[in-house]
């Protein structure tokens, strides 16, 4: 297992995002409603990086969309600094503009975010809306940071999955947000780009919540882990190091698995983690 750098962010660091008793089910009040989040409460502090772990369907993407004020949670509340955040609250243009500039969400499917004619326009989309100065320089800077400078005049649709993800990241970073919500940002990246992303995120002075189901990568991305269980509750919130040795928790979250091992003539089975990379 990788060496773990756990640097807890002081409890005195200001809270940027907070959830209280968050719960969500799709399908309204009908009998077919399906619960995807239950009793979720945590605080993200300024500058702190956390991973959001959970198996497929545990509700990671839904939680990130709620934190980004895109979905109204069925229960509970979300706060950004001192403001409650939900689609209704974001109808206030002043809060809306501040929140959208300061809290950015990278969607799991980068295609959903790309619609401008060229990569340049894609990255310039945010700054142009609020008339930031030096747009050209900003765009070129962030394109270089993520490594898509060569594609600036191409349409984003023809890029590879990993390149699309980088363009999206540049399009978010160009507004210099304070909170980054990243939904499986490493899913489409090759090992080299994954390494790059780890260093890139570590160098950013932002609070980040990064969803993944890749346990091997988690300690590289952050020092704190939030784990959504199969029961859609938050079953762990703490240092990632302690989590990685807690097989019971990991099994409850369906993040580890059991299968037979063969070593020569000996066969045995035990629960373990794969570094799928």
């Amino acid at each position: 297992m990788t060496e773990i750098r756990y640097r807890p962010v002081g409890v005195d660091a200001p809270a940027v995002m907070r959830t209280i008793d968050l719960g969500h089910h799709f399908g309204g009040e009908s009998a077919r409603a399906c619960e995807v989040l239950r009793d979720i409460g945590f605080t993200l502090r300024s500058g702190e990086k956390s991973v959001l772990l959970g198996c497929n369907g545990s509700g990671k993407s839904t939680l990130l969309k709620i934190l980004n004020g895109l979905i109204t949670p069925s229960h509970g509340r979300v706060f950004y600094q001192d403001d409650e955040i939900n689609p209704a609250r974001l109808k206030d243009p002043i809060l809306h503009r501040r929140f959208r500039a300061e809290v950015a969400l990278l969607f799991q499917n980068p295609d959903a975010m790309l619609f401008n004619p060229t990569v340049f326009d894609e990255i310039a989309f945010g700054p142009r809306q609020i008339g930031l100065p030096d747009i050209e320089a900003r765009v070129r800077h962030w394109a270089a940071e993520v490594g898509v400078s060569a594609h600036l005049s191409r349409p984003p649709f023809g890029l590879s999955g990993g390149e699309k993800q980088k363009v999206c990241l540049a399009a978010l970073m160009v507004l210099e947000p304070k909170v980054l919500l990243l939904d499986e940002p490493t899913a489409a990246l090759d090992p080299r780009s994954t390494g790059w992303l780890i260093d890139f995120l570590a160098s950013l002075p932002v609070a980040a919540l990064i969803s993944t189901h890749n346990l091997g990568l988690a300690p590289e991305l952050a020092s704190r882990a939030l784990v959504l269980g199969e029961n859609h509750r938050l079953i762990y919130d703490g240092p990632i190091q302690a989590l990685l040795t807690d097989m019971e928790k990991l099994a409850a979250a369906n993040l580890v698995h059991t299968h037979r091992h063969r070593h020569g003539d000996i066969e045995h089975r035990h629960t373990h983690v794969h570094d799928w990379q």
């Binding site: 959208r100 969607f107 499917n109 959903a112 945010g126 809306q129």
Partner: peptide, 16 residues
């Protein structure tokens, strides 16, 4: 679901 995502992504990136 994907259609929802396209709609939400535009909302998420729109400051105005």
């Amino acid at each position: 679901r994907a259609q929802d995502d396209f709609r939400l992504a535009l909302a998420s990136r729109s400051l105005k």
